[in-house]
Computed example of a mutant assay.
Amino acid sequence: MAKASFKMPEDFLKKVSGLNNKLDDIVPRVLEKGAEPAVEKAKNNLSLRIGQGTKEPSESTGELLKAIESTKPEQDNKGNWMLRVGAPKSKDSKGVSNALKAAVIEYGKSGQPPKPWLKTTKSQSRKPCIEAMKTALDKEIEKI
């Protein structure tokens, strides 16, 4: 699965640090809300790239587009929270890996030029994701 990472703003990190023992309950919900704009933007960008600039009509079944999602938030061994947005390691109805199809569209292959959609998704969704996480965090803080 493709990976994109963002550095969190300082004011956001200060709010999070004041939550102490409730942090492990709140952070996954905030990250999931923050991933929603990235998932939508990824689906939009991918749909614009599928079949673009091909000599033959597209034979897309739409299975890759439907497979775009975010993973569940998890902590790594350093204590950092993360989730991924992209095509999971699942396969389509013909047994072709969705991650492979996504990578071929992103980076191209012999005879097929690259049509970047994930890199543009990262840059286009950064601010909306941060705003969604700020809003979700503020709502979680109000509940406390």
Rank of each mutant, 00 (worst) to 15 (best):
A87P: 04
W81E: 01
N98M: 02
S70D: 12
L46S: 12
G111W: 10
V27H: 00
G95Y: 05
S47F: 06
S58V: 14
G51E: 10
P88L: 02
K115P: 05
L118Y: 12
R84L: 03
G34V: 10
S93F: 09
P73S: 15
L83F: 03
D25L: 00
N20G: 02
V30P: 13
A38R: 05
N20T: 01
G34C: 07
S70V: 06
K78G: 09
A99E: 09
D92Q: 12
N98R: 01
Y107M: 12
P28E: 04
A35C: 07
A87D: 07
R29D: 09
K119M: 03
K41W: 02
F12Q: 01
K91T: 13
S93K: 14
E56H: 08
E32C: 06
K7H: 05
Q52L: 06
E10I: 08
E56V: 10
K14H: 12
L64F: 11
D25A: 00
W81R: 03
D25V: 00
N44H: 07
R84Y: 01
V96A: 03
L100E: 05
G53T: 05
S93G: 08
L48D: 11
K109F: 08
K89F: 12
W81G: 03
E36L: 09
V85Y: 01
P28N: 07
N45V: 10
K78Y: 12
E32L: 11
K15T: 05
G79N: 06
P88W: 01
E69V: 14
N77A: 15
A67T: 12
K41C: 04
S97L: 01
S58K: 13
K7I: 08
K72S: 15
S93D: 13
S17C: 06
L23Y: 00
V16E: 05
R29P: 01
I50P: 03
T54E: 08
L19C: 09
K91C: 07
S90I: 09
A102I: 03
K14A: 10
R84E: 02
E106V: 10
M82C: 01
S17P: 05
A103S: 06
S60V: 14
D25G: 00
K22R: 05
D92K: 13
L65T: 09
